[in-house]
Design a protein around this nucleic acid. Sequence first.
DNA 1: CAACATACGGAACGTTGTTCCGCTTATCAA
DNA 2: TTGATAAGCGGAACAACGTTCCGTATGTTG
Lengths: 196, 196
Amino acid sequence: MADLGDGSKSPAPRKRADARRNEKTLLDAAAAAFVTSGVDVPVRDIAAKAGVGVGTIYRHFPTRADLIVAVYQHQVEACVQAGPALLASSSTPYASLAAWIDLFVDFLVTKHGLAKAMQSGDSAYQSLHGSFIDRLVPVCGQLLEAAGAAGEIRPGIGGFELMFAVGNLCSGADYGDARYDARRMVGLLVAGLRAD
Amino acid sequence: MADLGDGSKSPAPRKRADARRNEKTLLDAAAAAFVTSGVDVPVRDIAAKAGVGVGTIYRHFPTRADLIVAVYQHQVEACVQAGPALLASSSTPYASLAAWIDLFVDFLVTKHGLAKAMQSGDSAYQSLHGSFIDRLVPVCGQLLEAAGAAGEIRPGIGGFELMFAVGNLCSGADYGDARYDARRMVGLLVAGLRAD
DNA sequence: CAACATACGGAACGTTGTTCCGCTTATCAA
DNA sequence: TTGATAAGCGGAACAACGTTCCGTATGTTG
């Protein structure tokens, strides 16, 4: 019979209170650990910082990618919504594309090792692609399309490809030599989009 | 002649025959393993394929980077020498720069995981930077300078930075989505060099 | 309050890189 | 040729990590 008082279908049997509490604690601990030690921080460290066992982490976040996704979810969403906003407010589609890429680069370079994890190809990070990239690629594609329609960029470059390239350029931006400025290189790439 | 007749201290006491044989065997086994499993292939696998113990690998090549350097030494050297040659034979300095970068990209994308290892920042790969990059950066710098002097590219981009960026773009070119073409993205970057 | 399912902790396992040491073997002088 | 010597070898052993598993503890519900 209706499983609970909930009249409609109830696919959400509400988790136990301590479980919800732990999930929040874990998210906070992970966020802190990511800042200090990068997204590659050992699972045990996160567990210790949160005061839980490693099993608890794996129950809530089966893969490290799931944890990363959860931690940065809001910032990614903000980036998604910035796309249309920029397109509406910028002088030209190309300008909004450049501005949006800047935003994305800012996000990436402030998360130690995130870009690297994204391109790592490691199956453990599958959901990082699925959630981060798949969320952002359409926005990028939209901006590219607008700029293409305005004749501002060369054709044939897809959202995925550009995002992937930008991500790659940001890999190793940390600990990287001071001689390397990811932002500038991304700038070069975006400039290259114009050339005919 | 210097080997034996050298009256003074002999800094080269010639290694034992089996040691030299093993080093060669190891190099061959590693090269084969790199092709089939990428440069990240477990040390044990290389040792097994060569029919030696892991200790033997570490004695000959203290770090994985040393082994990689030794395996690809010749190809890197060929790339180094191609620089001046292209500069002499191409129509313009920019053209030779573009051609040389192409050469380098070809080298990188055919070595699974090499680009990634190069940017990894892992201290184990220190000598990869020291030997590969440091060998190639001057050549790249020379080409950049020539193109700069000819007024073909925007100023302020260094050899290290460009090499690093190209390496980054090639990271994850393997296993990467078919939608990503590292060569094309590098092309965009190089095109961006021109823009004013 | 009792019974039950949910969630927890952390020991244990598998896979790496790396070190270390007892044994083997090439080399060379006698 | 042969023995002494040291260079070199193999692989066991250790450490760090991700991941799994299960006995135990605890929230939840009737």
